[in-house]
């Protein structure tokens, strides 16, 4: 049964779409850490908040426009914009005070944000799971039925990855960000306002996360506690891929997503444990990650 092509195909597709969400979150996490040296524990919690907000916008407009794909697109655009604003405010009023402070204190601040935002979500949306339902016909492939929405997700994730790569490699602002990863002082000396870059990168990361939450809403219910599972896997991805490397993050997301998806068939409770084994192996063998550079860390 395990070697059935239908099962393998289904798991592969599930694993790849899982990889996409991991990538969309980890890229923001990795970028924030690369540029600002802040590891944002609350990244996935902000993703969750984005998901809940998008859900509410979707239900609000869904009432008189009908709950269809276009309304979801509208909700994703609005939800992402709101979260970009939230991200900016968090950077401006909280994270900014932490630059130059010791690592544990920075971790603790974002850890506190997990608790606060998680509880605020509970306060506003209650404890029920929130998901949206889109009427999608399942597709028959390789003697099995798959949700065609998986393809939408994999395509969207890959497109964002390509877009991010293009932004970082080819645009002026991308170059500034990369330069800031390399040497903040030099960039600052060239007359570029570093605080603005920081706020921008942080808001961008949160925006991508909120976008991911919206795109995944029809597939994955927003529920309390999911953020913790996800952030731990994102750490795994970032460590495996190497901090600050978009390519590494993408490859590592695919590895973690697919490995997770297949090990869940064999050891359902311990699928995450398998991921941690990979993390441990990478940290011991190449602490700077598969695609990171040894020199900088």
């Amino acid at each position: 049964m395990l070697l059935d092509p239908g099962v393998i195909f289904g798991q592969l597709l599930g694993g790849l779409s899982r990889a996409m969400i991991l990538f969309l979150l980890s890229s923001g996490l990795s970028l924030t850490f690369g540029v600002m040296n802040i590891l944002n524990f609350a990244h996935a919690t902000l993703w969750l908040l984005g998901g809940y907000i998008t859900f509410s916008i979707f239900s609000y407009f869904g009432e008189f426009l009908g709950e269809n794909g276009w309304v979801l697109v509208l909700a994703i655009v609005l939800g992402t914009s709101i979260m970009v604003g939230v991200g900016y405010l968090i950077e401006r009023f909280l994270i900014r005070r932490m630059y130059g402070r010791e690592l544990p204190e920075q971790l603790l601040l974002t850890f506190a944000l997990i608790l606060i935002i998680g509880d605020l979500i509970k306060l506003v949306w209650g404890v029920e799971d929130r998901s949206i339902f889109l009427p999608i016909e399942p597709l028959e492939m390789l003697d099995t039925y798959v949700n065609p929405y998986y393809f939408v997700i994999v395509a969207t994730g890959t497109a964002v990855a390509a877009g991010l790569w293009w932004f970082l490699q080819k645009t002026r602002y991308g170059m500034i960000v990369r330069a800031a990863v390399y040497s903040r002082d030099m960039v600052s000396a060239l007359g570029i306002r570093i605080p603005l870059i920081y706020a921008g990168v942080f808001a961008l990361g949160i925006g991508i996360a909120a976008f991911a939450a919206g795109v995944f809403l029809p597939l994955m219910p927003m529920a309390l506690g999911v953020d913790i599972d996800l952030i731990i896997q994102c750490f795994a991805v970032v460590v495996i891929g190497g901090f600050g490397s978009i390519l590494g993050t993408f490859v590592a997301s695919v590895i973690v997503g697919v490995v997770y998806s297949f090990s869940i068939l064999i050891w359902p409770d311990g699928a995450l444990a398998v991921v941690f084994l990979i993390v441990i192996a990478v940290l011991i063998w190449r602490p700077w990650g598969l695609f990171g550079t040894e020199l900088r860390y």
Binding site: A236, I280, L283, P287
Partner: peptide, 28 residues
Amino acid sequence: FFCVRLTGIYFAILTLAFGELLFYVVFS
């Protein structure tokens, strides 16, 4: 034995990874 090879953020993540690994072993 493994963790002391690293410091800073990597030490933090490796201890977290081992902790969660042991959690899942006990859990299942």
